[in-house]
């Protein structure tokens, strides 16, 4: 059962990610990405990260991708999509890299890493929202604060960049 789910999600994710890159209409790409986000969320559920699954949809699908769509439509992009001239080369490189990565990963497998020695509290049954919150606000408090500053920057930055009449304040 697990396998079935995994392979379903994996196939769809891989296919849609290719579609994102390959489709010529930005809207279709965006929608392919939307489907991918859902399946990634599904994958998270199979990994017992329900909280992340929900957040994935809320943030990625609900906010980020809507913004994309918004912009695509605002700019009314439908046609002008071309590939770089060097696409065969890039594709070849990409394929080689994929094969290499797959081979390397599969070849080596995943030997048990020496994590247990780590100081991180190993929390049984990861995926617990409470556990995430606990770690987020204790161990990773500092990155959390940094992330909040990042959001601040993004917020003000977006306003400065996109607002029309900001320059006129300067008399």
């Amino acid at each position: 059962m697990e396998q079935v789910f995994f392979f379903y999600f994996a196939v769809v994710i891989a296919a849609t990610s290719v579609l994102v890159v390959a489709l010529r209409n930005p809207i279709y790409s965006t929608l392919a990405l939307l489907i991918m986000f859902f399946h990634v969320a599904g994958l998270y559920v199979t990994l017992h990260a329900e909280f992340l699954a929900a957040v994935q949809i809320i943030v990625y699908a609900g906010a980020i991708l809507v913004l994309y769509l918004f912009v695509v439509m605002l700019l009314n992009l439908k046609q002008d999509v071309r590939y770089h001239r060097q696409w065969p080369m890039a594709a070849a490189v990409g394929v080689i890299l994929v094969i290499e990565a797959v081979v390397l990963t599969a070849m080596k497998g995943w030997t048990t890493p020496a994590v247990a020695a780590g100081t991180e509290t190993a929390i049984a049954g990861a995926g617990n929202t409470e556990a995430i919150g606990d770690v987020l606000y204790t161990t990773y408090l500092f990155p959390f604060e940094v992330a909040s500053v990042i959001l601040l920057v993004a917020m003000i930055g977006a306003i400065i960049l996109a607002k029309k009449d900001i320059g006129e304040r300067e008399a």
């Binding site: 992340l52 980020i64 995943w110 991180e120 190993a122 929390i123 990861a126 995926g127 987020l136 990042i150």
Partner: peptide, 21 residues
């Protein structure tokens, strides 16, 4: 999930934040 270590999920959180920003 593999490590039973919730830190990875926290990282996803940060990635999301950064992506949004």
């Amino acid at each position: 999930q593999y490590f039973h270590n919730v830190a990875g999920q926290v990282f996803v959180f940060f990635t999301l934040t950064v992506a949004a920003a």
